[in-house]
């Protein structure tokens, strides 16, 4: 029970060798009074009763072969696939997004940035779908400012799948200008259609290249726009717990 006497959500943070924003992610979760981070190690096969999972960013297995390709075969990924199949909420950030595409839990793939350079800067993101469990505390069209830091964030998917994703509302976040308008060059990586974040068809798995965990604390330079994603997950977890 949290200090407020309500439900304390247990949010799993998955650690693969080479992941480097695991502590940022756990700290971000800790800034919410009704949530606690639960460490999950890549060799675990038991999810320790978590109610949602965040796969943080970094360089799992050194990005060898392809980003996320080796992590996908870690022992914990079987349990994560089962968790997803049962409707559990999973958010993959950056390398976590890449891992989820490699595991076929999200459509598409992420390739080298179009400029062949690692990009590390603020981006503005437009919320295209505010009806998902990961964005439900935002309004459609909200512009969120968070950082990206990646070398392979160029989202690619075949045209038929993209058409279906658009029709379903699975394109959740797109890069935009600070005022929410689009220009050809507002994507930092050349992503198809300026896509920054997508959901699966069941809307319980979400991946995004930007790092919301670095924009959660008032008074720090990163702002607080990243709280939307964590707050949305916590609201969903609370509703799921109430429904049980």
């Amino acid at each position: 029970m949290s200090a407020s006497g309500g439900h304390t959500a247990r949010i799993g943070v998955v650690v693969f060798p080479g992941i480097n924003t695991d502590h940022d992610t756990a700290r971000a979760i800790s800034t919410f009074a009704d949530a606690e981070p639960v460490w999950l190690w890549h060799k675990d096969t038991d999810l320790r009763g978590v109610e949602a999972i965040v796969i943080p960013g970094g360089f799992s297995y050194g990005d060898y072969l392809r980003c996320g390709a080796i992590a996908r075969f870690s022992p914990i990924m079987g349990a994560i696939a089962d968790f997803a199949a049962a409707g559990g909420l999973i958010m993959g950030i950056c390398n976590g997004f890449q891992i989820l595409t490699e595991a076929h839990l999200l459509p598409g793939a992420l390739i080298r940035n179009i400029g062949l350079k690692f990009v590390c800067r603020y981006v503005d993101l437009r919320v295209e779908n505010a009806g998902t469990p990961f964005t439900q505390t935002a309004e459609p069209g909200d512009v969120l400012r968070v950082v990206v830091k990646h070398n392979e964030g160029n989202y690619r998917v075949d045209p038929e799948t993209l058409a279906a994703m658009r029709a379903n509302g699975q394109v959740v976040l797109r890069y935009c200008e600070p005022d929410g308008t689009e220009r050809d060059d507002c994507s930092p990586n050349g992503a198809l259609d300026g896509i920054a974040g997508v959901c699966n068809a069941d809307f319980n798995v979400f991946g995004l290249m930007p790092h919301p965990e670095n924009s959660v604390e008032p008074g720090l330079a990163g702002g607080t726009d990243g709280r939307v994603f964590f707050q949305s997950i916590l609201n969903e977890v609370r509703d799921m717990a109430a429904a049980r």
Binding site: R112, L116, R156
Partner: peptide, 14 residues
Amino acid sequence: TPKHGILDPQGVAV
């Protein structure tokens, strides 16, 4: 090799 029809930023640069 990168699939045909998929952008290859390295190939373009070379």
